[in-house]
Protein backbone atom coordinates (compact mmCIF):
# COMPACT_ATOMS: atom_id res chain seq x y z
CA UNK A 1 0.00 0.00 0.00
CA UNK A 2 1.70 3.12 -1.10
CA UNK A 3 -1.12 5.32 -2.23
CA UNK A 4 -1.53 9.02 -1.54
CA UNK A 5 -4.59 10.99 -0.50
CA UNK A 6 -4.77 14.65 -1.52
CA UNK A 7 -7.07 16.76 0.64
CA UNK A 8 -8.61 19.30 -1.73
CA UNK A 9 -9.35 22.86 -0.68
CA UNK A 10 -12.80 24.02 -1.75
CA UNK A 11 -14.22 27.53 -1.58
CA UNK A 12 -17.76 28.40 -2.62
CA UNK A 13 -18.18 25.05 -4.33
CA UNK A 14 -15.07 25.47 -6.48
CA UNK A 15 -11.72 23.74 -6.24
CA UNK A 16 -9.09 26.20 -5.00
CA UNK A 17 -5.91 26.45 -7.01
CA UNK A 18 -3.89 25.59 -3.92
CA UNK A 19 -5.05 21.99 -4.43
CA UNK A 20 -2.96 21.71 -7.61
CA UNK A 21 0.31 21.97 -5.66
CA UNK A 22 -0.61 19.04 -3.41
CA UNK A 23 -1.58 17.09 -6.53
CA UNK A 24 1.83 17.82 -8.07
CA UNK A 25 3.43 16.43 -4.92
CA UNK A 26 1.19 13.35 -5.09
CA UNK A 27 2.04 12.75 -8.74
CA UNK A 28 5.78 12.75 -7.99
CA UNK A 29 5.60 10.77 -4.76
CA UNK A 30 3.12 8.13 -5.98
CA UNK A 31 5.22 7.51 -9.09
CA UNK A 32 8.26 6.94 -6.87
CA UNK A 33 6.31 4.60 -4.60
CA UNK A 34 4.66 2.71 -7.43
CA UNK A 35 1.20 3.64 -6.17
CA UNK A 36 -1.63 5.95 -7.13
CA UNK A 37 -3.18 9.09 -5.72
CA UNK A 38 -6.75 10.01 -4.96
CA UNK A 39 -8.30 13.40 -4.26
CA UNK A 40 -10.72 13.94 -1.38
CA UNK A 41 -13.27 16.72 -1.97
CA UNK A 42 -15.44 17.73 0.99
CA UNK A 43 -18.30 20.18 1.44
CA UNK A 44 -22.08 20.45 1.38
CA UNK A 45 -22.37 20.34 -2.42
CA UNK A 46 -19.16 19.58 -4.25
CA UNK A 47 -20.11 18.30 -7.71
CA UNK A 48 -18.43 21.25 -9.49
CA UNK A 49 -15.26 20.99 -7.42
CA UNK A 50 -15.21 17.20 -7.87
CA UNK A 51 -15.53 17.59 -11.64
CA UNK A 52 -12.52 19.92 -11.61
CA UNK A 53 -10.57 17.52 -9.41
CA UNK A 54 -11.40 14.68 -11.80
CA UNK A 55 -9.25 16.35 -14.49
CA UNK A 56 -6.05 16.14 -12.42
CA UNK A 57 -4.97 12.60 -13.21
CA UNK A 58 -6.01 10.94 -9.96
CA UNK A 59 -6.90 7.24 -9.71
CA UNK A 60 -10.17 8.47 -8.25
CA UNK A 61 -11.89 11.45 -6.73
CA UNK A 62 -13.64 10.77 -3.43
CA UNK A 63 -16.48 13.12 -2.54
CA UNK A 64 -17.93 13.52 0.93
CA UNK A 65 -21.00 15.72 1.16
CA UNK A 66 -22.80 16.72 4.33
CA UNK A 67 -24.69 19.84 5.35
CA UNK A 68 -22.33 20.24 8.32
CA UNK A 69 -19.37 20.60 5.94
CA UNK A 70 -20.80 23.74 4.29
CA UNK A 71 -18.33 25.88 6.18
CA UNK A 72 -14.84 24.71 6.97
CA UNK A 73 -14.01 24.02 10.60
CA UNK A 74 -11.10 21.70 11.43
CA UNK A 75 -13.15 20.09 14.20
CA UNK A 76 -15.75 18.98 11.63
CA UNK A 77 -13.42 18.05 8.77
CA UNK A 78 -10.70 16.17 10.65
CA UNK A 79 -12.73 13.03 11.53
CA UNK A 80 -13.63 12.31 7.89
CA UNK A 81 -10.15 13.15 6.54
CA UNK A 82 -8.58 10.87 9.15
CA UNK A 83 -11.05 8.01 8.57
CA UNK A 84 -10.51 8.05 4.80
CA UNK A 85 -6.79 8.78 5.23
CA UNK A 86 -6.34 5.52 7.13
CA UNK A 87 -6.32 3.66 3.83
CA UNK A 88 -3.35 5.64 2.48
CA UNK A 89 0.40 5.93 3.02
CA UNK A 90 0.49 9.73 2.78
CA UNK A 91 -2.21 12.32 3.47
CA UNK A 92 -1.22 15.60 1.84
CA UNK A 93 -2.59 19.10 1.44
CA UNK A 94 -1.19 22.50 0.57
CA UNK A 95 0.15 24.68 3.37
CA UNK A 96 -2.47 27.41 2.92
CA UNK A 97 -4.33 28.76 5.97
CA UNK A 98 -6.72 25.80 5.42
CA UNK A 99 -4.01 23.14 5.24
CA UNK A 100 -1.98 24.55 8.12
CA UNK A 101 -5.07 24.57 10.31
CA UNK A 102 -6.47 21.17 9.37
CA UNK A 103 -3.56 18.82 8.66
CA UNK A 104 -1.80 18.83 12.06
CA UNK A 105 -5.18 18.11 13.63
CA UNK A 106 -5.57 15.15 11.25
CA UNK A 107 -2.05 14.01 12.18
CA UNK A 108 -2.99 14.15 15.86
CA UNK A 109 -6.07 12.07 15.17
CA UNK A 110 -4.09 9.46 13.21
CA UNK A 111 -1.21 9.50 15.74
CA UNK A 112 0.96 10.16 12.70
CA UNK A 113 4.03 12.27 12.10
CA UNK A 114 3.49 15.58 10.28
CA UNK A 115 5.97 17.31 7.97
CA UNK A 116 4.90 20.93 7.45
CA UNK A 117 5.37 23.24 4.51
CA UNK A 118 7.76 21.01 2.58
CA UNK A 119 9.52 22.24 -0.55
CA UNK A 120 10.69 18.92 -1.98
CA UNK A 121 10.05 15.19 -1.65
CA UNK A 122 12.92 12.76 -2.16
CA UNK A 123 12.19 9.09 -2.77
CA UNK A 124 14.71 6.37 -2.09
CA UNK A 125 13.19 2.96 -2.71
CA UNK A 126 9.86 3.08 -0.93
CA UNK A 127 11.06 5.62 1.64
CA UNK A 128 10.10 9.27 1.36
CA UNK A 129 12.18 12.07 2.81
CA UNK A 130 10.73 15.55 3.07
CA UNK A 131 12.85 18.63 2.61
CA UNK A 132 11.52 21.59 4.53
CA UNK A 133 12.76 25.09 5.31
CA UNK A 134 13.55 25.94 8.94
CA UNK A 135 15.05 28.96 10.71
CA UNK A 136 13.30 31.40 8.38
CA UNK A 137 14.62 29.55 5.36
CA UNK A 138 18.25 29.65 6.53
CA UNK A 139 18.45 25.86 6.70
CA UNK A 140 16.66 22.94 5.14
CA UNK A 141 15.87 19.93 7.30
CA UNK A 142 15.48 16.49 5.75
CA UNK A 143 12.57 15.03 7.69
CA UNK A 144 11.69 11.36 7.90
CA UNK A 145 8.44 10.13 9.40
CA UNK A 146 8.42 6.94 11.47
CA UNK A 147 4.66 6.26 11.51
CA UNK A 148 2.93 4.06 8.87
CA UNK A 149 0.88 7.04 7.66
CA UNK A 150 2.61 10.33 6.86
CA UNK A 151 0.76 13.64 7.03
CA UNK A 152 2.35 16.34 4.89
CA UNK A 153 1.66 19.91 3.82
CA UNK A 154 3.42 21.32 0.76
CA UNK A 155 4.54 24.87 0.13
CA UNK A 156 2.47 26.13 -2.77
CA UNK A 157 5.25 28.14 -4.40
CA UNK A 158 7.57 25.10 -4.42
CA UNK A 159 5.20 22.76 -6.26
CA UNK A 160 4.00 24.21 -9.55
CA UNK A 161 0.35 23.75 -10.45
CA UNK A 162 -0.64 20.48 -12.08
CA UNK A 163 -1.94 20.59 -15.62
CA UNK A 164 -5.17 18.69 -16.37
CA UNK A 165 -4.63 15.06 -17.41
CA UNK A 166 -7.39 12.58 -18.17
CA UNK A 167 -10.64 11.97 -16.36
CA UNK A 168 -10.85 10.25 -12.99
CA UNK A 169 -13.86 8.31 -11.73
CA UNK A 170 -15.76 10.07 -8.95
CA UNK A 171 -17.04 8.00 -6.05
CA UNK A 172 -18.82 8.82 -2.84
CA UNK A 173 -16.90 8.42 0.41
CA UNK A 174 -18.32 8.01 3.89
CA UNK A 175 -18.92 11.03 6.09
CA UNK A 176 -17.57 10.43 9.58
CA UNK A 177 -19.63 12.52 11.97
CA UNK A 178 -17.53 14.11 14.70
CA UNK A 179 -18.07 12.68 18.16
CA UNK A 180 -16.83 14.13 21.42
CA UNK A 181 -16.96 17.78 22.46
CA UNK A 182 -14.78 19.90 20.21
CA UNK A 183 -17.06 20.24 17.17
CA UNK A 184 -20.01 21.46 19.23
CA UNK A 185 -17.99 24.13 21.01
CA UNK A 186 -16.80 26.08 17.99
CA UNK A 187 -18.73 28.22 15.54
CA UNK A 188 -17.83 30.48 12.66
CA UNK A 189 -19.41 33.89 13.23
CA UNK A 190 -18.28 35.56 10.02
CA UNK A 191 -15.91 35.20 7.12
CA UNK A 192 -14.95 38.48 5.51
CA UNK A 193 -13.30 37.84 2.19
CA UNK A 194 -11.53 40.72 0.56
CA UNK A 195 -12.32 40.55 -3.12
CA UNK A 196 -9.43 41.57 -5.28
CA UNK A 197 -9.03 41.93 -9.02
CA UNK A 198 -5.37 41.10 -8.67
CA UNK A 199 -3.88 37.62 -8.82
CA UNK A 200 -3.37 35.83 -5.50
CA UNK A 201 0.01 36.45 -3.93
CA UNK A 202 1.08 32.83 -3.79
CA UNK A 203 0.16 32.25 -7.43
CA UNK A 204 1.24 35.47 -9.13
CA UNK A 205 3.97 35.52 -11.79
CA UNK A 206 4.96 39.01 -10.68
CA UNK A 207 4.79 40.39 -7.14
CA UNK A 208 5.25 44.03 -6.14
CA UNK A 209 5.88 44.47 -2.42
CA UNK A 210 6.20 47.68 -0.48
CA UNK A 211 7.73 48.57 2.84
CA UNK A 212 7.16 51.06 5.58
CA UNK A 213 8.88 53.80 3.60
CA UNK A 214 5.75 54.17 1.45
CA UNK A 215 3.73 55.39 4.42
CA UNK A 216 0.16 56.46 3.55
CA UNK A 217 1.03 56.45 -0.16
CA UNK A 218 1.30 52.65 -0.23
CA UNK A 219 -1.51 52.03 -2.71
CA UNK A 220 -1.18 55.30 -4.55
CA UNK A 221 2.42 54.51 -5.51
CA UNK A 222 2.26 50.72 -5.95
CA UNK A 223 -1.15 50.16 -7.58
CA UNK A 224 -0.10 51.60 -10.96
CA UNK A 225 3.01 49.37 -10.98
CA UNK A 226 0.89 46.31 -10.16
CA UNK A 227 -1.56 47.26 -12.89
CA UNK A 228 1.03 47.62 -15.61
CA UNK A 229 2.68 44.31 -14.64
CA UNK A 230 -0.48 42.35 -13.80
CA UNK A 231 1.20 41.79 -10.46
CA UNK A 232 -0.02 40.79 -7.01
CA UNK A 233 0.54 43.33 -4.27
CA UNK A 234 2.58 42.35 -1.21
CA UNK A 235 3.99 44.12 1.82
CA UNK A 236 6.69 43.85 4.45
CA UNK A 237 5.74 43.08 8.02
CA UNK A 238 6.70 46.62 9.00
CA UNK A 239 4.26 48.07 6.46
CA UNK A 240 1.48 45.80 7.73
CA UNK A 241 2.22 46.51 11.38
CA UNK A 242 2.15 50.23 10.69
CA UNK A 243 -1.26 49.81 9.07
CA UNK A 244 -0.18 50.94 5.58
CA UNK A 245 -1.18 47.57 4.12
CA UNK A 246 -3.66 44.90 5.23
CA UNK A 247 -2.03 42.00 7.04
CA UNK A 248 -3.00 39.33 4.53
CA UNK A 249 -0.56 40.97 2.08
CA UNK A 250 2.41 40.24 4.31
CA UNK A 251 5.26 38.43 2.61
CA UNK A 252 7.68 36.69 4.95
CA UNK A 253 8.44 33.83 7.30
CA UNK A 254 5.20 34.43 9.16
CA UNK A 255 3.16 35.63 6.22
CA UNK A 256 2.96 34.39 2.65
CA UNK A 257 5.90 32.71 0.98
CA UNK A 258 6.15 33.61 -2.68
CA UNK A 259 8.44 32.57 -5.51
CA UNK A 260 7.36 34.52 -8.59
CA UNK A 261 9.37 35.02 -11.79
CA UNK A 262 9.80 38.67 -10.90
CA UNK A 263 9.73 40.28 -7.45
CA UNK A 264 9.90 44.00 -6.72
CA UNK A 265 10.92 45.06 -3.21
CA UNK A 266 10.09 48.75 -2.96
CA UNK A 267 11.26 50.60 0.13
CA UNK A 268 11.91 47.31 1.92
CA UNK A 269 15.11 47.01 3.93
CA UNK A 270 15.18 43.21 3.80
CA UNK A 271 14.88 41.84 7.33
CA UNK A 272 15.59 38.12 7.67
CA UNK A 273 11.96 37.32 8.15
CA UNK A 274 11.01 39.12 4.91
CA UNK A 275 13.79 37.45 2.91
CA UNK A 276 12.43 34.08 4.07
CA UNK A 277 9.25 34.85 2.19
CA UNK A 278 10.68 35.91 -1.16
CA UNK A 279 14.24 34.78 -1.76
CA UNK A 280 13.05 31.88 -3.88
CA UNK A 281 11.94 34.43 -6.51
CA UNK A 282 13.63 34.10 -9.88
CA UNK A 283 14.50 37.75 -10.45
CA UNK A 284 14.53 40.23 -7.57
CA UNK A 285 14.50 43.99 -8.05
CA UNK A 286 15.06 46.29 -5.10
CA UNK A 287 14.53 50.02 -4.94
CA UNK A 288 15.69 51.64 -1.73
CA UNK A 289 17.25 54.93 -0.67
CA UNK A 290 19.67 53.17 1.65
CA UNK A 291 22.43 51.58 -0.40
CA UNK A 292 23.46 49.43 2.57
CA UNK A 293 20.03 47.85 3.04
CA UNK A 294 20.30 44.04 3.28
CA UNK A 295 17.77 43.64 0.47
CA UNK A 296 20.56 44.53 -1.99
CA UNK A 297 22.44 41.38 -0.95
CA UNK A 298 19.77 39.22 -2.55
CA UNK A 299 18.58 41.54 -5.33
CA UNK A 300 19.58 40.82 -8.92
CA UNK A 301 18.98 44.44 -9.78
CA UNK A 302 19.29 47.14 -7.18
CA UNK A 303 18.44 50.78 -7.64
CA UNK A 304 19.59 53.10 -4.87
CA UNK A 305 17.10 55.90 -5.21
CA UNK A 306 14.12 57.66 -3.67
CA UNK A 307 11.16 55.47 -4.51
CA UNK A 308 8.63 58.30 -4.79
CA UNK A 309 9.88 59.69 -8.11
CA UNK A 310 11.39 56.34 -9.21
CA UNK A 311 8.28 54.15 -9.14
CA UNK A 312 6.10 56.44 -11.31
CA UNK A 313 9.02 56.73 -13.74
CA UNK A 314 9.32 52.93 -13.74
CA UNK A 315 5.60 52.62 -14.49
CA UNK A 316 5.93 55.07 -17.38
CA UNK A 317 8.89 53.25 -18.91
CA UNK A 318 7.40 49.75 -18.49
CA UNK A 319 4.23 51.00 -20.16
CA UNK A 320 6.35 52.27 -23.06
CA UNK A 321 8.18 48.93 -23.33
CA UNK A 322 4.93 46.97 -23.26
CA UNK A 323 3.39 49.29 -25.85
CA UNK A 324 5.99 48.33 -28.24
Amino acid sequence: MADILVVAEVAEGKLKKTTHSAVTFARTASAALGGTYSILVMGDAVSDAAAEAASLGAAKVITVEDASLKIYLAERFAPTVAAIGKGFAVVVGTASAFGKDLLPRVAGRLASGYAADITEVIASGDKLTYKRPMFAGNAFGMATIATPIHVVSVRQSAFSATEPAGTSPIEKGAFTAPTGNAHGRVELLSLEQVKSERPELAEARVVVSGGRALKEKFSEVLDPLCDVLGAALGASRAACDAGYAPSDLQVGQTGKVVAPSLYFAIGISGAIQHLAGMKGSKVIVAINKDGDAPIFQVADYGLVADLFPSVPELVKQIKAVKAG
Binding site: A78, K100, R105, G108, D117, M134, F135
Partner: peptide, 14 residues
Amino acid sequence: VDGDSNQVGQILAE
Protein backbone atom coordinates in the same frame (compact mmCIF):
# COMPACT_ATOMS: atom_id res chain seq x y z
CA VAL B 1 10.61 30.29 14.50
CA ASP B 2 13.33 27.62 14.57
CA GLY B 3 11.40 24.56 13.36
CA ASP B 4 8.70 26.67 11.64
CA SER B 5 6.28 23.73 11.78
CA ASN B 6 3.09 25.37 13.06
CA GLN B 7 1.63 22.17 14.50
CA VAL B 8 1.65 21.75 18.30
CA GLY B 9 -1.52 23.75 19.03
CA GLN B 10 -3.56 21.86 16.45
CA ILE B 11 -2.29 18.42 17.54
CA LEU B 12 -2.90 19.32 21.18
CA ALA B 13 -6.48 20.42 20.44
CA GLU B 14 -7.15 17.09 18.75
